[in-house]
């Protein structure tokens, strides 16, 4: 019974990790850039959502799409201002650029929200805990989990069923090949940044609803998703979600059966073991190396 409860908690938190991971994977897949600014981006969008609800007074269901639109805009802006000028430069330089962007976003957030913890007004997510016998399922997490699954399905359909998705996959394969095929890869990059920021914003809103938002602490929550995406493979969409779930479950099991103290590092130890056996993550694409 306890086991089931830990499993439920793990799956539900894992969904949240998967959602953050999805945002990182989308960008990595198409641009090969690891986005260190993911935490700052998701916090920013979530803070905008809170501001729309509390300061402007919009209902949550209206504030949500507006803040997601803002997220898309912010992603576009980041790509255009920060990364476009560095096109075709060494990958590490681009990663460094995301670090610089993170600093800019952090400062901008401080201008508007200072260092206080900002919380959503209570009950923006309607409903209450569902009890299934002795097992309880918190509704806030359930929403997050449903949204994560929906995001995963939508992004999957987008990638594998649409023309644009096909272009994105070609770009992921090789930038040169994509350009030779007449694909406008700068547009693909902009697209993937927008998509990733929107997914991140959703994660940020759920986290904010849970823990409140603070400009220095909330971004670091994104690092919780790191073992998840390495676990699944940096360039695999399915891997992000499955990795998220695995890490979530591992964490709760470790906290439940061993000691909460080891919960945070258990994913990393498992991660090291996985990497030793499968260096490209569980679902990552195996690259055949040539000289």
């Amino acid at each position: 019974m306890l086991f089931l409860q830990y499993l439920v908690a793990g799956v539900l938190t894992g969904g949240l990790y998967g959602l953050i991971g999805l945002g990182i994977v989308i960008i990595y897949k198409s641009t090969k850039v690891f986005n260190f600014a993911v935490g700052a981006l998701m916090t920013f969008c979530a803070l905008v959502c809170v501001a729309l609800v509390t300061n402007v007074g919009l209902p949550f269901w209206l504030a949500l799409p507006i803040s997601l639109a803002f997220a898309a805009f912010l992603g576009l802006l980041t790509e255009r201002v920060g990364l476009r000028p560095l096109l075709a430069q060494p990958i590490l330089t681009l990663i460094m650029a995301t670090l610089a962007i993170e600093s800019i976003l952090y400062g901008t957030m401080l201008l508007f929200w200072e260092g206080y913890t900002i919380s959503f007004p209570q009950g923006v997510l309607p409903g209450q805990t569902i009890f299934l016998g002795p097992i309880f399922i918190p509704h806030e997490f359930l929403y997050a989990f449903i949204v994560a699954t929906a995001c995963f399905v939508l992004v999957g359909v987008f990638f594998f069923k649409t023309q644009m998705g096909l272009r994105m996959r070609v770009t992921a394969e090789s930038h040169v090949v994509a350009m030779a095929l007449g694909i406008n890869i700068t547009r693909i990059f902009a697209m993937s940044w927008m998509l990733a920021t929107v997914v991140g914003a959703l994660a940020g809103i759920f986290i904010g609803n849970r823990l409140g938002l603070q400009v220095a602490i909330t971004p670091s929550l994104a690092f919780k998703a790191l073992p998840a995406i390495i676990f699944g493979g940096l360039d695999s969409l399915a891997g992000a979600i499955i990795g998220g779930l695995t890490v979530g479950i591992l964490e709760k099991m470790a906290a439940g059966y061993i000691d909460p103290k080891v919960a945070e590092i258990t994913p990393y130890i498992i991660l090291l073991l996985v990497l030793l056996i499968r260096p490209q993550g569980l679902f990552g694409e195996e690259r055949i190396e040539r000289i």
Binding site: A100, S103, L105, Y106, G107, T108, M109, L110, L111
Partner: peptide
Amino acid sequence: ELGLGPIVFGV
């Protein structure tokens, strides 16, 4: 006072 530092740094 709080926010300008990180912004300038990043820019």
